[in-house]
Design a protein around this nucleic acid. Structure first.
Lengths: 188, 188
DNA sequence: GTCTATATACCGATAGAC
DNA sequence: GTCTATCGGTATATAGAC
């Protein structure tokens, strides 16, 4: 098994474990048990735990950019593209109920740790933010585009935190309906 | 200095540190340095770290209930009472920018730790939820009261997560304005 | 009620054999 | 490229002197 494959396995396992158990709470032993490697061998692939975090964030940004590319290809209407983002919390409602939003829970944790990579983690939000603002500009709202993009992002985070705190999935569907109605007021 | 005072000091220091640095990331040494006690002496006042967490949650619930009592006393109109809650994120915007919402960040962390006290921590939300629902009932929305209460809570959490991730205070004021406008549609 | 000393476990990270 | 063994640090928690 080559280095590239092992490295990718480490990143994939770390991504999942950071999401489910948190970054600080995830140990090398946890990742090692998942991948099937010994603890000491990690340092051949990564210089430190923070470097693994960097690779995980990079992978998440790349994955989200791919989602955006697909939504653009599948939906010609900007309003439908924004709706695709809104529907994310519905599609992933089971995981959100158990572990919250992968992006929001990571930035929240890194802020508490005063971790220097908080800015990097926020870039995952920025990818959505920029893209959503572009869609609102296409919807004829160029001046408020960024504000509306932030509003949609805040919606997703509010829903995720509350669904996670109460373990309530049903709540998500109601909030998505409410958000769809709101979005409709901006359609031409 | 009696036991009751020392205990209260421990709870107060732990409350602040759990908020600023997270529960798991806060050690007895951190609390000890703040209160001015030795590590070993903690176990005279609390059986374990989880028992300190329990006391912190209890103190937070009590403090929030006191806020609600005051808002009820000061504002006869239910809409103004709800607005007082909405304004919380504006009043505490500096701390939210740095450390997020004390309630939401704790439930998020405890969910990742699969900590048995997640349900207890969610009770702080429940205190607000029940009270907000009462106000919406007074506003003439008894059927949707709980749904509207959850919507207001989700707003506060969405704003807190995004302001914390981007370190952006200005964003909070815009979202509060938006929420005030929304609330106005329910006033009679 | 508060202290020091310590038990026990786990953490991230390193060294060196193969 | 993967392994074992281990270092140094820190964590929660306990024991016992004062």
């Amino acid at each position: 098994m080559g280095a590239a494959t092992t490295r990718a396995q480490i990143v994939e396992a770390a991504d999942r474990l950071f999401y489910r158990n948190g970054f600080d709470h995830t140990s090398f032993a946890d990742i090692a048990a998942t991948v099937g490697l010994s603890r000491g061998n990690f340092y051949y692939h990564f210089k430190s735990k923070d470097h693994i975090l960097g690779a995980v964030i990079e992978a998440r940004v790349a994955e989200r950019r791919e989602w955006l590319r697909q939504w653009e290809a599948e939906e010609p209407e900007p309003a439908r593209r924004i709706e695709r983002f809104i529907e994310l919390v519905l599609t992933n409602r089971e995981q959100i109920q158990s572990h919250g939003c992968p992006v929001g829970t990571l930035t929240t944790e890194l802020a508490k740790l005063e971790h220097p990579m908080l800015g990097q983690a926020a870039c995952v939000f920025t990818a959505f933010r920029t893209w959503l603002a572009e869609q609102f500009t296409l919807l004829g709202q160029p001046e408020q585009a960024d504000e509306l993009a932030m509003h949609v992002l805040a919606f997703s985070q509010g829903v995720a935190v509350m669904a996670n705190a109460f373990g309530d999935q049903a709540f998500i569907a109601r909030e998505v309906d409410r958000m769809r109605d709101w979005l409709r007021t901006y359609e031409r």
